[in-house]
Write a protein that binds this DNA or RNA. Sequence first.
DNA 1: GCGTTGGTTGTCATGAATGATAACCGAACT
DNA 2: AGTTCGGTTATCATTCATGACAACCAACGC
Lengths: 73, 73
Amino acid sequence: MITRQDALVKIGRNIKAAREAGGMSQQDLAAGCNFEKSNMSRIEAGRSNLTVGTLLKISDVLGIRPADLLAGV
Amino acid sequence: MITRQDALVKIGRNIKAAREAGGMSQQDLAAGCNFEKSNMSRIEAGRSNLTVGTLLKISDVLGIRPADLLAGV
DNA sequence: GCGTTGGTTGTCATGAATGATAACCGAACT
DNA sequence: AGTTCGGTTATCATTCATGACAACCAACGC
């Protein structure tokens, strides 16, 4: 059974992949979500147990479905 | 664009549907997640902006993928 | 040299999720 | 009458995500 840590790291990787596919920087993505790039860095590193609300903001700016960020989890 | 509220309500409905499909009570599901039925009631009602960690606990006990709980969101 | 860009890390305050307890409701059943 | 069951709601304390600020690093261009 997958641990929470591993799941958060995978989600972070999914975010990073989608972000780079869109040619955005962490700065850009964070700004679109209305928070700082420092927090986005932590999220992508899997060091933040983010809420569904935050997940929605991110998927919204990335233009993908929230469920896509949970791919492989 | 879907609001956070609507998304949380949908997730709550997804949890409820999967729970009832498995013949569990809120009590059962909550106990499997190591918290109280009162909290599960709030989650299913969409009145809690739950974290990914909590989402994982629930999907684990339900025996489904976390992404399934975000269906339609 | 200097400045900029993309990203990381540390720290902080505030708000909110979590976890627990209790009271309550309706329905079913004895 | 009581009591058990599934669920809701209110309230509380503790923990933690969020959001913001600053400092830092490497790589790049001027």
